[in-house]
C-alpha cells in the first residue's frame, strides 16, 4: 500500500478515535457490562483505541521505512 494511503489511514484512525471516546459515540458505548478482561466495557473500549494507535502508527512507520529511500536509521 502506498505511503500516502498509510498517512491517510493514520489520520482517519485518530479522528475516529477522538469521535469514539467523546459524545455522542461514547454515550452509545456506556454499559459497563460485559466486563472485558475484568475491566468495565467503557474502560476496555478506551484502552483498545489506545492500543490501536500503536498498531496504526507502527504500520505507517514500517511503510515509510520500506518506501522512502532516505528513511533509514538516523535520518535527519
Amino acid at each position: 500500500m502506498p505511503l500516502q494511503t498509510w498517512h491517510r489511514i493514520a489520520w482517519v484512525y485518530h479522528l475516529l478515535f477522538a469521535a469514539a471516546v467523546t459524545w455522542p459515540v461514547q454515550a452509545m458505548v456506556n454499559d459497563p457490562q460485559p466486563f472485558i478482561l475484568g475491566l468495565p466495557r467503557q474502560m476496555a473500549w478506551c484502552a483498545a483505541w489506545v492500543l490501536g494507535s500503536l498498531v496504526v502508527l507502527w504500520r505507517l512507520d514500517a511503510a515509510r521505512i520500506r518506501q522512502t529511500p532516505a528513511a533509514t536509521e538516523g535520518d535527519q
Binding site: 493514520a10 485518530h14 478515535f17 474502560m43 478506551c46 484502552a47 483505541w49 489506545v50 494507535s53
Partner: peptide
Amino acid sequence: GAAAFYILTYGVLGMAPWY
C-alpha cells in the same frame, strides 16, 4: 468514577500528531 477514563484517552490523541 468513570470520569477518570478521559485521562486514559487524551495522551495518545495528543501525542499522535507528533509523528
